[in-house]
Nucleic acid binder design. Structure first.
Length: 693
RNA sequence: GCCCCCUUAGCUCAGUCGGCAGAGCACAGCCAUGGUAAGGCUGGUGUCGUCGGUUCGAUUCCGACAGGGGGCUCCA
């Protein structure tokens, strides 16, 4: 029927509209609420403006602001407003790209005269953006040939570079023009006569639709991420569909800040980074040292039970070892420079433990009967991290890996990988992390040793094992180490952030380089397979992740001080001492806090110290042989608890490594973002400690 | 390494438009002996990150260095 188009909606229904109707018309025809919430549309799966004309027979979905792709539209549109504001404030600035990122957006600029943004500029830019939003400028899409585009952006070198890339077919061209032209073209969005940006779109209909945004920080960033190219000035911001969503996001960020392990490390007296020692080189104080010891003790216990053997190796080695291993070819940038000893002999601090473990394997002839051999070491390694990337305990220059190398026969490889993965996940759960997915990292292009066949086999084996785990599995193309592909375990913490935890790497290369062999059943020599794996990654980083996961309130079994006994008055001190002794006698870490201050003050200090238990003892307790139990996280203290009963229940809690009931949650009790956001959240999405070895 | 910001008491921070500095908490002493999140009084606290420059005089201005924070593959 002429003059009418029929479109299908996501619920399967169809709707007829006059020919030439737009997605916005469709939204309005469905209902005013949808029309108000709409920011864009999907026509046959393609994200387009609301102003897009509906083709007959299309599948159409209206995209609202709260949807993931709707938020991206909002953020991208806000980025354009940011660019317009900066161009108003810095006439002659060059603008580069302004993409959407997780939870926000940024825009890169080159300011006239090499000017730089400072923090103070954020306020001015913010005000200008709000003015642009108040003007309610429409976003109007135009399409151009490459030549037209180059002319429009004649004085914008970065835009021209992008357009030229489109013209050369280098950039994907997914915005097929409405008239079906196949030749390269570009599109622009015009906000006002004064501002047009090159953009694929889509955008909200007008700037008035925006407003729930916050500019966050300025930073330098290289054009195209390449440090050989010009450094641009970047502004980061976040934008949301409502004031409430924005507030929630900012609250989550504030919560992350509150949990920052660097802050907790000072507050709880766990560790510090003395300037005198150097950047990225932490020292652990007695309380932090206790936590480390406990983490390591339990790890040792589990590794013994799982058939690992403990080895120890030195921190430095002659250069030859890392020449053989290939580290000096592939990892030299990450190593501290050598020291010269014994008349020119070069020694290196070790960045990885693997070559040392290989030498232990090679110390004598090995039989197939011995395999698999599993060597474990808390091995301290040193890596020269660039000065700008060291970060708390998560990115350091000296760290201790809970590093193991498994040497096995090829026919044992699959089983060994699978049991290792199960072991790793099981132990991580005991530390309180239980929300995992796996990531498979494949061959890094141009930065790998070994043949394609070897890589293919190793990768296929890893994939098979990983997909048998019943967890989500992502592929990280090109993210492997130079000597082999890896599986990494990603864990979500209490506030929904993802951390890379353990890595399991398959290595066909090192056994070859070191000429490793064992004697098989056939009395011939064979080459073993090598599996590298770290469970914590590094003790330091895992410590930091646990600290943030628990917001400093470590489970009782890991708490440096588990119980503090508080006598109400001086004359209860002797009894308090007896209670403390009883607990200490069964291995509980207990402190006495004498009545030098009022009880309330001591309770408060104990709470700020995040102690699992505060025991208050007064007249009633001395008379009855009881304690008052104030439990961390409990709503009210429990009076008159038998000392024996408390001791037994505490011993049980510790032995069972019980976890605190409520770990997560933001201060207002709300879960993170609406719409089931999988946001990794701000801040510490730590990269792993790099390749283990 | 590069860009922006920061460095003042143990911690968090104020301050000096250039004349050797302050608050709260913490710490010490005394008083108060208090049943579950801060009792009172008194007191000491600093090479104002380091080195150099400008200046009669620098914690303050300039520079270098060190340390810290935020970024630097999320491709119109």
């Amino acid at each position: 029927m002429a003059g009418v188009v029929t479109v299908s909606l996501p619920d399967g229904s169809t709707r007829q509209l006059p020919d030439g109707s737009t997605a916005a018309d469709l939204a309005a025809s469905v209902g005013p609420r949808l029309a108000k919430a709409a920011v864009a549309a999907r026509i046959d799966g393609r994200l387009v403006d609301l102003a897009a004309v509906l083709p007959d027979g299309a599948d159409v979905a209206i995209v609202t602001a709260e949807a993931a792709d709707g938020r991206e539209v909002l953020r991208h549109s806000t980025a354009h407003v940011l660019a317009q504001a900066v161009l108003r404030l810095w006439p002659g600035a060059h603008y580069a790209i302004g993409p959407v990122i997780e939870d926000g957006f940024y825009y890169d600029f080159e300011l006239p005269g090499g000017a730089r943004f400072t923090d103070d500029d954020l306020g001015r830019i913010d005000a200008e953006m709000r003015a642009i939003i108040a003007e309610d400028q429409p976003f109007v899409r135009h399409e151009h040939t490459v030549e037209e585009g180059l002319a429009i952006f004649a004085d914008q070198p970065f835009k021209r570079e992008i357009i030229e890339a489109v013209g050369a077919g280098a950039a994907e061209v997914d915005a097929v023009p409405a008239d079906g032209r196949a030749d390269p073209h570009v599109s622009t969005y015009e906000n006002s006569p004064a501002f047009t940006d090159l953009c694929r779109g889509p955008h909200v209909p007008a700037t008035g639709r925006l407003g729930h945004f916050a500019l966050q920080r300025v930073a330098g960033a290289y054009w195209r991420g390449d440090e050989k190219r010009p450094q641009l000035q970047r502004v980061y911001g976040t934008a949301w569909e409502s004031a409430k969503a924005l507030e929630q996001h900012l609250a989550l960020r504030a919560e992350a800040e509150r949990r920052d392990h660097r802050k907790l490390g000072v507050e709880l007296d766990l560790f510090s980074f003395p300037d005198e020692i150097g950047s990225g080189l932490p020292v652990f104080h007695p309380k932090g040292g206790t936590v480390r010891r406990l983490m390591e003790e339990y790890s040792r216990q589990r590794h013994v039970a799982a058939g690992y053997e403990f080895v120890t190796t030195p921190h430095i080695t002659k250069a030859g070892l890392f020449e053989t291993s290939g580290h000096l070819d592939w990892f030299a940038d990450g190593m501290f420079p050598p020291m010269e000893l014994d008349g020119g002999q070069q020694y290196y601090l070790k960045p990885m433990n693997c070559p040392f473990h290989i030498l232990i394997f090679k110390a004598r002839q090995r039989s197939y009967r011995e395999l698999p051999l599993r060597f474990f070491e808390f091995g301290t390694v040193y890596r020269y991290e660039k000065s700008g990337v060291v970060h708390g305990l998560t990115r350091v220059r000296g760290m201790t890996q809970d590093d193991a190398h498994i040497f096995c026969r090829r026919d044992q490889m699959s089983e060994e990988l699978s049991s290792t993965l199960h072991f790793v996940l099981d132990v991580l759960r005991d530390y309180g992390l239980d929300d995992f997915y796996l990531e498979l990292s494949t061959k890094p292009p141009g930065k790998a040793v070994g043949t394609d066949e070897e890589w293919d086999e190793a990768t296929a084996t890893l994939r098979e094992v990983a997909s048998g785990m019943g967890l989500g599995l992502l592929t990280d193309e090109g993210g492997g180490a130079f000597y082999g592909p890896k599986i990494s375990v990603q864990a979500k913490d209490a506030i929904g952030r993802t951390h890379q935890m353990s890595t399991i790497q398959l290595d066909f290369q090192e056994p070859q380089r070191f000429g490793m062999e064992y004697v098989g059943q056939d009395n011939a020599r064979h080459r073993p397979i090598m599996i590298h794996r770290a469970l914590f990654g590094s003790v330091e980083r895992f410590f930091a992740i646990l600290l943030e996961h628990y917001a400093g309130a470590l489970p009782t079994w890991l708490s440096p001080v588990q119980v503090r006994v508080l006598p109400v008055r001086d004359d209860h001190l002797a009894y308090a001492g007896k209670v403390a002794d009883r607990l200490a006698a069964v291995g509980v870490r207990v402190e006495l806090d004498p009545a030098d201050e009022p009880l309330g003050a001591r309770i408060r200090r104990g709470k700020l110290d995040k102690l699992p238990y505060l025991l208050v003892v007064g007249d009633d307790d001395v008379a009855a042989g009881t304690v008052g139990v104030n439990r961390r996280g409990g709503d009210r203290p429990q009076r008159g608890v038998e000392v024996m009963a408390f001791t037994e229940s505490l011993e049980h809690e510790i032995a069972a490594r019980q976890l605190p009931e409520a770990v997560g949650g933001t201060p207002d009790g709300e879960a993170s973002g609406s719409g089931g956001a999988t946001a990794a959240g701000p801040g510490v999405t730590g990269r792993g400690g790099g390749p283990v070895g």
